[in-house]
Every structure is written in structure tokens, then in C-alpha cells.
Design a protein around this nucleic acid. Structure first.
Lengths: 158, 158
DNA sequence: CAAGATTGAGTCATCAATCTTA
DNA sequence: TAAGATTGATGACTCAATCTTG
């Protein structure tokens, strides 16, 4: 773990690059492993799960496309296409927003809830196995606190 | 920040899901912002930068495709295609490995080094602006330590 | 046969342009 | 005119299959 050209701050007391360059592979590898587990278990894909999860947590189990995008790591465009797929699979319905004719609402169906519940144990086990298990409770809390601040800062600036 | 259906562990003392679900948007948004900055500054894209960075840090400024993939968040397939592009741009050359006829080596060119150096300030400023700035020195060290452990665990298990 | 790398085909994700309504 | 959403075109990424060498 010696200093090398990959990081000109290596060994310096305060280093802005190392946490960033640790986060990249940590998240990427855990993500891929969780996705593999979910596919192997025959449950919905992670991107579907994220959408179903946010809808299940929303009031009336429905959200506008834009709000769905804001709550996930998906673009508005991607959400639009993902909801198409979910509607085709019967997990979600799409209705116009009665309060704003421009907006459209995605609503979770009973089958959508069932699909989310079926996937939940695989999802939680994947997070445990490929991410949380490798950290102490203190470290998990530290990571949660720090990265929540980063997200909050991005939300604030737009 | 109250408990809701999105996280059945919310409020519980030790929560494996919250740090994971904070890491996803934190990294995604910072990544996109850094990529935008690099594009706006007219320097190489982030994926190119990562490859150039690892080559510059390697002995002889060259690496086999597989080793390049292991040091980045890119698949072997993606590295193969990315190196094609870099060769076409004159930033890298590709030679067969003299020690193993199956392997091929990517080597950084002088122009490749120059491109990396030109991009470095934008890259570092982006990490600072969109990620590190929002954390204290202590938090940065905590994140680095924790996520490095996750990566090490993945390396160990294969 | 196993390992390293590349190619073909398909999916995922984004930008710019468009359509509709406020 | 601006906001919400969708569509078309394009590039990024991955899996499976293939080629080559150990």
C-alpha cells in the first residue's frame, strides 16, 4: 500500500482521493455481485427492485416519473422506459396525474408488491454478504453518515 | 429522515442497508458531475483517465489487459475495446507480451502521459468539489478505511 | 483442456429533440 | 414560454461464443 503515481496524496495526512478511489470498486463489485445473486434466485433485477421499493414506500404507492427518478439513481428517461417494462410485466400501472395533466403516475400493483417481497430477502442478503458483512457496526454508521452528507449536499445544490 | 417502508431497519441500532443506500446516490451523482466537468474542460473522459492513470503507475508504464481490468471498474471486454480507442487516439500502444504469447500489453505513450497530466487537475478538482469537500478529514479517512476493507474482502474471495 | 484476449449480439443509460399541457 | 414526459439515436457495458497460445 505504498505511495505511487496513482495517488499523489498517498501518505499525506488528509487525502481527498483515497476515499473516492476506494468507493468506486467497493460499490461496483458489490453491485455486480448483488445483481448476480438476484438473477440466480430468479427474482426481479436490482433496477426493478429499486423502483418497486420506492413506489411501495410512497403515499398511495404511486409516484410521478420525475419523483421516481429523484429517489433512485435513474434518469427521467430511464425511468420512463423502465416503467414501460414494469407495466408490460404487470407490476405497475401508469395513469395521468389528476392534479397535473402533464405528469404521469406510476402505481404499484398487487403483483408488483408480491414481486418486491419475493425479492427482498435476496436483496438484503446480498447487501449483507457483499458489503455490510465486511464492516463493523461502527464503520457502517460512519459510512452511512458521511455519504448521506454527500447526497444531501448534492440535493441542496441542485 | 423517519422510518418508512424503504428500509425496514430504519431506527435500529445497527443497520446494514442505510450505508449501502447512501453510497449509491453519493457515488452516482459525484461520478456524473466529475464526468461533466471533464467533458466541459475538453480533457479525456473519466474511463480513459482511469486507464491512463493505472498505466502511468505500472512498472514500465504497461499492463496486461487483465491486470488493467483488475485495477479499474472495467470488465476485460470493456478494457479491450477501450484500449482500441486509446490506440486509435495515439495515447497507448498494444504489443504482445514477450513472456506469454496469449497476453497483450498496453503501453502508455508520451502523448498518453501528456493527456493524463492535462486531465489531472480537472479530475482532482472534481473529486474535491463533488465529493471530498462535503466531508471532514476524519470522515474522509473513515470512508477510505471502511471501503478499502470491502474491496480487500472482494479481492480475497475472488 | 485451461488461460488470455477479442468479437458479436444484445441490454443499459444518456443526450437531444419532440410532444403535450400549465 | 416553461415543465413533465416520452421517443430516436447513440454510446457504454456485459454475456456468451470464439480464437489463440500455454
Amino acid at each position: 500500500m505504498g505511495a505511487d503515481a496513482r495517488n499523489c496524496y498517498a501518505g499525506v495526512v488528509d487525502d481527498p482521493v483515497t476515499p473516492w478511489r476506494a468507493a468506486l470498486p467497493a460499490q461496483h463489485r458489490a453491485l455486480r455481485a448483488i445483481e448476480r445473486d438476484m438473477a440466480a434466485a430468479g427474482v426481479v433485477a436490482l433496477s426493478w427492485y429499486d423502483v418497486l421499493l420506492e413506489l411501495d414506500a410512497a403515499p398511495g404507492r404511486q409516484l410521478r416519473m420525475q419523483d421516481l427518478a429523484a429517489r433512485t439513481v435513474l434518469s427521467r428517461t430511464r425511468v420512463s422506459r423502465l416503467v414501460d417494462d414494469l407495466v408490460r410485466a404487470g407490476l405497475v400501472t401508469r395513469q395521468p396525474d389528476p392534479d397535473d395533466g402533464r405528469a404521469s403516475l406510476a402505481t404499484l400493483t398487487t403483483e408488483g408488491r408480491r414481486a418486491r417481497r419475493a425479492a427482498a430477502p435476496v436483496y438484503l442478503a446480498g447487501i449483507q454478504e457483499h458489503f455490510a458483512r465486511h464492516l463493523t457496526a461502527t464503520e457502517r454508521a460512519q459510512v452511512a453518515r458521511a455519504l448521506t452528507k454527500v447526497v444531501a449536499a448534492h440535493d441542496a445544490t441542485g
